[in-house]
Amino acid sequence: MRSPREKRPPGQKQYYRRKKVCKFCVERIDSINYKDVKLLSQFVPERAKIMPRRISGVCSQHQRRLNDAIKKARNIALLPFATE
């Protein structure tokens, strides 16, 4: 095991404020697939709108892929376009 000191670089304190991180970058999910309803539905709240980046914290690259995937999934009725 490494000591905890090694895990934290010296500049850590500066970034103390809680920073939103991109789920896909952190968990290293490469493929955002339109068939993966379980994953995609985390990013479509009740109204079935796509969750904006400022709320979910997803990075722009992954948000773009996510948008594509959600729109494909909507096309084949895996996700709703809108709910009443």
């Binding site: 068939k35 909507r74 009725a77 895996l78 376009f81």
Partner: peptide, 18 residues
């Protein structure tokens, strides 16, 4: 068979094939 997220041709569910 899966439930569709919205009605398609008045069907509420459908069999998916890939």
């Amino acid at each position: 068979k899966r439930r569709l997220a919205y009605d398609v041709d008045k069907f509420r569910e459908g069999s998916y094939v890939l």
